[in-house]
């Protein structure tokens, strides 16, 4: 009995300290992003809350098991100078221990599956429903080896680029975005056997979705903070599925801005596009 009480007390103390550290971590960072370091979208927040919840339980479980192992190894060890002998107790079964363990692990796992997994997925799925995405900004994303190409069909922007000509993703804050994800090369759209799987990931948004050749995938989310790659490098588009030699370079800058700034950027892009097309002598009969 004494040993059981000792394990329990040590667990309470050590576990309590560990939980205190965990909670401080959870409450750290901008907007309490804690373990996620930087979260700026509605879907990311769903994941973050699940992470925080599981972390608190995982730390408690971890401490319990480690305390049991460490306590046994110290308390029941053969000490220096003692002769090894048969253990005094040879109990091969203890219904209470086995019962508590098995029922406990079943209950915990069912709990984890219901919350946060199923409940979190409900939130993710709800965020994908049409009624929650009225007035969504549509961004067509083409993933090719090795580039992300963003176009904005609602605004007639064919390829959004920054002033250096690199692809860039601009989004207005707090407006739903519909990403339409395809793996293909707009410049070589007949070579479909060379298309590979990519994965569209914005670390700060806490979500990635694979982009598979021959399929069109949709991802709906809402950027919740004004930020950009310059503010924090987790705010970037990064390919997350190995796609050949250029995989590490397959990234793009992201800017989440006010609606006004977004409108101005759209005008700027149109202007840029017109001047490029003019330069190439393509435009004319279209206008």
């Amino acid at each position: 009995m004494g040993d059981l009480v000792a394990v329990f007390v040590i667990w309470l103390v050590a576990g309590g300290l560990a939980e205190w550290a965990t909670v401080s971590w959870i409450n750290s960072g901008p907007w309490d992003s804690g373990p996620y370091f930087y979260v700026a979208s509605n879907l990311g927040t769903v994941g973050l809350h699940a992470f925080d919840f599981l972390l608190e339980f995982a730390v408690a479980i971890f401490m319990l098991v480690v305390v049991m192992i460490a306590y046994s190894a110290v308390r029941f060890r053969v000490r220096r100078g003692e002769r090894p002998s048969q253990a005094p107790s040879q109990s091969r079964y203890n219904g209470t221990f086995v019962g508590v363990w098995i029922v406990g692990s079943i209950v915990l796992n069912l709990l984890f599956w219901i919350h946060p997994t199923a409940s979190g997925l409900e939130a993710v799925y709800a965020a994908q429903l049409p009624q929650n995405n009225k007035n969504a900004l549509i961004v067509d994303v083409a993933a090719r080896q090795w580039e992300w190409i963003f176009s904005y069909p609602q605004y007639g922007i064919q390829q959004a680029v920054n002033n250096q000509g690199f692809d860039a993703l601009w989004l207005p804050v707090n407006r739903p975005v519909e990403f339409v994800l395809k793996s293909y090369d707009p410049a070589h759209n007949y070579e479909n056997i060379d298309y590979v799987i990519h994965s569209f990931w914005i670390p700060a948004f806490g979500v990635k979705e694979d982009v598979v050749p021959g399929q069109t995938r949709y991802l709906y989310l809402i950027p919740t903070h004004i930020t950009s790659t310059k503010t924090n490098e987790m705010v970037r588009v990064q390919c997350a599925e190995v796609c050949g030699g250029g995989h590490p370079y397959m990234e793009a800058d992201v800017h989440v801005v006010t609606p006004q700034a977004f409108a101005a950027w759209v005008q700027h892009q149109k202007h840029l596009q017109a001047s490029i097309l003019n330069l190439e002598g393509i435009v004319g009969d279209e206008s």
């Binding site: 040993d3 049991m68 046994s72 190894a73 053969v78 253990a87 005094p88 109990s91």
Partner: peptide, 9 residues
């Protein structure tokens, strides 16, 4: 863990 408990480790 059940084996470790009260063993002579």
């Amino acid at each position: 863990i059940g084996t470790l408990w009260r063993s002579r480790l």
